[in-house]
Design a protein around this nucleic acid. Structure first.
Length: 189
DNA sequence: CCGGCGATTGTCT
DNA sequence: GACAATCGCCGGC
């Protein structure tokens, strides 16, 4: 993954992230479900009302991690995709663990189904992504969370759908999920 | 399999 | 004081 690939319109970067890997100390997972978020042009985005203390890392630089607290309980992880001063990011909604299934399921407190971490909160819990990693550089070798290159396979396709859990901009089709040619062309959950 | 709902707390008004 | 880029459980079909 090069930083240049991560800097661009959030929907394009979102698609490009599918098939790449998120890695922490003891878990590696392949990204299969993402959502794009913009800035002043996107009322559903955390950046819509400008920079705040909690969302500051969403304002760049690209390739850094934006972690926020959802519903006071969960953590959710984003890949920032704009240079410093501008805001946009890709929420990682789902991934398949390819290394460290035991560590991930131990953190989750339950067995994973087919190695899947579906849902942004579950994904962060399984990977062990904490608020303390907010703002770290995903392309830096010794970061607590890293992004590793990966691509989709020929039999894999991408479906676009509306984003989940919003009260605004509910129709913008900025969710992108991988599905195998043999399975139903619809994102899980 | 699917829809509904309560829990729970950081963040902003 | 309201709201939230969620989750897990429960009930119905």
């Amino acid at each position: 993954v090069k930083r240049l690939d991560l800097e661009g319109p959030p929907d394009e970067v979102a698609r490009a992230l599918l098939g790449s890997f998120l890695a922490t100390k003891d878990v590696v997972a392949r990204i299969v479900d993402v959502e794009a978020y913009g800035a002043a042009d996107d009322e559903a985005s955390h950046a819509y009302r400008g920079q705040r203390m909690a969302n500051r890392s969403m304002f760049g630089p690209a390739g850094h991690l934006y972690v926020y607290v959802s519903y006071g309980i969960h953590r959710c992880a984003n890949v920032v995709c704009r240079p410093e001063g501008e805001a946009a990011a890709v929420l990682v909604r789902g991934a398949v663990v390819v290394e460290g299934v035991a560590a991930a399921s131990a953190r989750r407190g339950r067995a994973l189904i087919a190695g899947r971490l579906d849902g942004p909160g579950r994904l962060c819990q399984g990977l062990g992504i904490e608020l303390g990693s907010d703002g770290c550089d995903l392309l830096e070798e010794d970061s607590p969370v890293r992004l590793l290159p990966g691509a989709l396979e020929p039999a894999e396709h991408v479906v676009a759908a509306p984003r989940i859990g919003l009260t605004k901009e509910v129709d913008r089709p900025w969710r992108f999920a991988v599905f195998a040619h043999s399975s139903r062309p619809r994102p899980s959950r």
